[in-house]
Nucleic acid binder design. Structure first.
Lengths: 351, 351
DNA sequence: GTGAAAGCGCTAACAG
DNA sequence: CTGTTAGCGCTTTCAC
């Protein structure tokens, strides 16, 4: 493996010159640039990222901390993050919140030890104090879909508004008794969606608190919640689930019971994971712009850590601006728009 | 950030001694060990991984190259790999085959530049010559579910045998005309599954080559293939799909056409992705032991690169032995057993 | 047992 | 514009 030293020797210049050439820093005459170029090609020189990392105290890599990679929402997010990081020439380390954390050592420690540029945290199961510590150590951070007390930049969807849209959509197609399968109150997006549901239905004559049934944000959670719901309210004619996985669980239970969707019960979820378009009937849902969320997360993170997109890839699309680029420092919470996706599970059944 | 130097100074010893202590190499007297320990604690010293990487010419990290993280099979695999890597104290870099490759630079180059310990390749869309190059440069490699000419260690399932099991299962429940939705011939597992299907049905009186319909290994591919199949053979009573995604596509089309599963057409897939248990009816399938595949991949890779599980985690489960631990060097192909999972889509319909 | 010193490969003042 | 040189933080001979 040739080093910068070999290149310098062959080109008849100093290592400093080669380094300058490599990093487009400082001046290098046309003439010497060519000699260096030739030497690099001749030796098939490849700059060593680890050595650069040591010298620069940064490795051009970020960590992404996810709660559960097998939940279909996260691979989508990860993909978007990865593609954007790639544009900046950054590497992405994927950490599973549950297996890593506490176990090996704290995230802060791992990030420092490896000279990472920061972390994108999408895990709701990371304790607030762990975040506080990262924040305290001035480690660049961006939170996706999870809140934090300290002004850490956050990216999220308009969950409350989305929930309202979903409920209104159900009403628009004629639903007259709408239930909600809600996620754990400790998970902010779930709480917001629940609130959005309440905003729309609380004043209705048919509303009863027991129309809200809690459960895990998973298929199993949705199944259990639906069972409970049907026991209490066999006459619901529409369900708004806190996320698509729960909605799919509901679908399964309804199906088993011989309850037709959407004829007997209309159903809508939240997220628009790929699965939503796969189940039968296809699931209506509230779409989160996961690709935008991923891109934005990377942009915010790397902007904070002073990175710039590499000039090396002129083909790369221009980096999309965040929703609100007005203030230079940037707001600390980015709320992204959501949209209702109408599919078969809410095909209008009246009229 | 305190360095090893600070620790040495505080402990009144040399950096060499601290280093020895840290790595359990060479002798350190009980006495000095304690002084060093105290200093480390006092300073909250954390060894810098990048500096170690430079000095050791290795960073204790591996790359995992996947074709498409949004295909549900891969997050499962990634999870298993990640958990095992964690046990060794290794980091995992996730690379998307399509976005990275050729674009930035070759994998070989990226791996060398970053002092990675090797790569697990699960991407069928990486050209053979790219693998040859990695191999030529002596970069430790393990292939999952994809073949290679040069004796690179490979992990795969008994695809052919699994296909035979699937077909036999269909026959056992009374199927009398079984079709196959096959994946691209260029993807080895797909070709093997197709061959397994042929093994079982070729000699049957009802068999016709047109019962095999090719397509992409995706939901859309399965849908298209099923349409084509039904046009040619409206009377099939069972379908074996090359993977679960295709089977789910088939399910959708059958559903739309009002063809009941399993009453009119029985259906079985391959892989056992989580989705299989979610669709309605639940999908029978041939299960690949994805968790074993992931663990084994890491074991093989790190064994090759001379790593040992960290002693730091006595709690970690013992590393599972590969199927065939007989030869020290290890065979180059590990074929894992598969099993038929019977679910509703092949509930016996005769009798 | 322990320390001095020479790297690992690259960056960044600071002279010239 | 270019070269010298001192690091970045840790590992590893090789003496003592």
């Amino acid at each position: 493996m040739p080093t910068i030293r070999d290149v310098a020797r062959l080109a008849g210049v100093s290592v400093a010159t080669v380094s300058r050439y490599l990093n487009h820093k400082g001046y290098v005459s046309r003439e010497t640039a060519e000699k260096v170029e030739a030497a690099i090609r001749a030796l098939k020189f490849e700059p060593n990222e680890v050595a650069r990392g040591l010298a620069n105290q940064k490795l051009n890599a970020i960590a992404v901390i996810l709660p559960d990679i097998t939940n279909p929402f996260f691979p989508e997010l990860l993909k978007a993050i990865d593609e954007q990081a790639e544009r900046y020439g950054y590497n992405v380390l994927v950490w599973n919140a549950r297996s890593h954390a506490s176990k090996r050592s704290s995230y802060a420690r791992m990030i420092r030890q490896q000279y990472l540029d920061g972390a994108i945290i999408a895990a709701h199961d990371i304790a607030e104090d762990e975040i506080a510590r990262l924040q305290a150590e001035a480690i660049p951070l961006v939170l996706v879909d999870r809140p934090s007390a300290h002004g850490v930049p956050q990216i999220r969807s308009r969950n409350r508004e989305g929930a309202r849209l979903a409920v209104r959509h159900l009403m628009a197609i004629g639903a007259e008794k709408i239930a909600h399968l809600s996620g754990p109150a400790s998970i902010l997006p779930a709480a917001e969606r629940r609130q959005g549901y309440l905003d729309e239905v609380e004043a209705r004559p048919w509303f009863a608190p027991s129309l809200i049934v809690g459960g895990e944000l998973s298929i199993e959670g949705g199944m259990a919640a639906t069972e409970a719901l049907l026991a209490r309210h066999p006459d619901v004619d529409a369900i708004f689930a806190a996320n698509d996985l729960m909605a799919i669980g509901a679908l399964k239970v309804l199906h088993r019971r011989g309850i037709r969707v959407p004829e007997d019960v209309a159903l809508i979820g939240f997220d628009d994971i790929p699965l939503a378009a796969v189940v039968e009937p296809e699931l209506s849902t509230v779409r989160q712009p996961v690709d935008v969320m991923g891109r934005l997360a990377v942009d915010l993170l790397l902007r904070r850590s002073n990175a710039r997109p590499k000039k090396k890839h002129p083909a790369a699309q221009p980096i999309e601006r965040p929703d609100d680029p007005s203030s230079a420092a940037g707001p600390s919470v980015y709320e992204l728009e959501v949209t209702v996706i109408e599919r078969a599970s809410t095909l209008r059944k009246n009229r």
